[in-house]
Write a protein that binds this DNA or RNA. Structure first.
Length: 427
RNA sequence: GUGGACGUAGCUCAGUCGGUUAGAGCGCCGGGUUGUGGCCCCGGAGGUCGGGGGUUCGAAUCCCCUCGUUCACCCCA
């Protein structure tokens, strides 16, 4: 392959048809599922003040310490290309005073996120997320609703090879106590832990549950689970969420080792894990974040949300052989001009047809009639309107049905009505 | 940031114990039908064999470096 001078930056990609159109459809379906549940679209800037993410995601997280695209703009301000969507939404919620619109505020978003990681299957530097936030309610049933949205979308798409895992990560009342107990336990089994985990035991003890090392897993099998150490309030909430999911008929497994990577999560944490996607198998994930609004300088405001990786969603469709939507856009008419005919005739017919809201195209390559027919076929056109000298002399044009290889003359003035008639006839 | 695999036409790939002008299928363009698609037939365009260096009489084929892609670790959507 001759080396092109410019290529899409590492970890980014161009979405080209027909995949682009396929993605569009999936997004439209997601929007439908969300709208049906009262969620409304919000768009926030791709750029935010760096502090917003440092505060919300956590100073010690991988995202903040090594993955953000941060730069100083020409005015000396530190800006960051958003690595996730929740903090910006909460920021906007506070800034625009959306609480005055009544609670809960149910918002959804779609857009690109940026993280400077090493790309691999299902992991990109610029990736798209669709997500939703329910802000202002502490009701466990709204956790269930948020979680169920992904399940409903998966079901609508026909996806089956996944499972929902659920956990509670506690709150500011119970987490410190659990942390202490866990740290104590980890000290005891330190010799049988891998190097990584020994480090993590000190910096972020709950992360050890993520380790896939055989030795660690065994050593951790007897570790205290947070589920047994959460406070009565958290426990009650967790049970409420599980009850809600049962009512919504969303099956789940409790996984006490599930932890989330962003600091702001409290209580509910969940993840939809898929088979057949490679190492990055979480297509949708999220949780509750009851202190985030406060952390950002607003009034205490509970919230819960999810975000879904669009690329991973599309990959899961691929792996289950789904999402090959039958007909993509079909061209209704191709207006072909015979050699020697004034192109103006073709062009004005084209305008007339398009003005009547029929998709139509014509030749812009100066090609022969034969080549134009070929082009019409390639575009999937149903009809070809042939503008030829002979027909014009009789005051008409020819209309050809590509499906049935039939062709007939029509008066040039009836172009649009003839197309309408044809379309009614095929139905 | 670490490790492995791979890098030949637009796409999918063949060709490598080193040896004349680097191939196929698909796609693209044109012709076979002096005004007509899909099938078929014919022809054509398109390749610094990722890049650089080295070994050799000779390298797409061997060696080194580099860039890129990809998968995995890490982490996460």
């Amino acid at each position: 392959m001759a080396e092109l001078r410019y290529r899409a930056p590492k970890g980014t990609y161009d979405l080209v048809f027909p995949e682009s159109e396929r993605t569009e459809r999936v997004l439209a379906l997601a929007g439908e599922v969300l709208t049906l549940r009262g969620y409304r679209r919000i768009s926030t800037p791709v750029l935010e003040n760096t502090e917003l993410f440092r505060r919300s995601i956590g100073e010690d997280t991988d995202i903040v310490t090594k993955e953000m695209y941060t730069f100083e703009d020409r005015g000396g301000e530190s800006l960051t290309m958003r690595p996730e969507g929740t903090a910006p939404v909460i920021r906007a919620y506070l800034e625009r005073g959306l609480y005055a619109e009544g609670l809960p505020q149910k918002l959804f978003y779609f857009g690109p996120m940026f993280r400077r990681e090493r790309p691999q299957a299902g992991r990109f530097r610029q990736f798209y997320q669709i997500g939703a936030e329910a802000v202002g309610s502490a009701d466990p049933l709204i956790d269930a609703e948020i979680i169920s949205i992904s399940a409903v979308l998966f079901q609508r798409l026909g996806l089956e090879r996944y499972r929902l895992v659920l956990n509670s990560v506690g709150c500011r009342n119970c987490r410190p106590g659990y942390r202490e107990v866990l740290t104590g336990y980890l000290e005891g089994i330190a010799p049988s832990l891998c190097e990584q985990c020994r480090k993590r035991a000190k910096t972020n003890p709950m992360r050890v549950f993520d380790c896939k090392e055989e030795g660690c897993r065994e050593a951790l099998s007897g570790a205290p689970a947070i589920a047994e150490h959460i406070c009565p309030e958290c426990r009650e909430h967790f049970e409420g969420v599980m009850g809600g999911l049962e009512m919504l008929e969303v099956p789940f497994d409790v996984d006490r080792s599930l932890v989330r990577g962003l600091d702001y999560y409290t209580k509910t944490a969940f993840e939809f894990q898929f088979e057949g996607l490679g190492a990055q198998n979480a297509v949708s994930a999220g949780g509750r974040y009851d202190y985030l609004a406060e952390e950002l300088g607003g009034p205490p405001t509970p919230g819960v949300g999810f975000s879904m990786g669009v690329e991973r969603l599309m990959m899961s469709l691929d792996s289950e052989g789904l999402g090959m939507f039958e007909e993509l856009e079909q061209m209704i008419v191709f207006v072909a001009g015979v050699e020697g005919v004034d192109r103006g005739r073709v062009f004005s017919l084209l305008k007339e047809i398009r003005d009547a809201s029929f998709s139509a195209d014509a030749d812009f390559m100066g090609r022969s009639l034969k080549a134009q027919m070929k082009q019409a076929d390639r575009l999937g056109a149903m009809l070809v309107m042939i503008v030829g000298g002979e027909e014009l002399e009789r005051g008409g044009v020819a209309l050809r049905d590509l499906g049935r290889s039939e062709q007939w003359d029509i008066p040039i003035g009836d172009a649009v009505s003839e197309i309408e008639r044809f379309l009614e006839g095929t139905r």
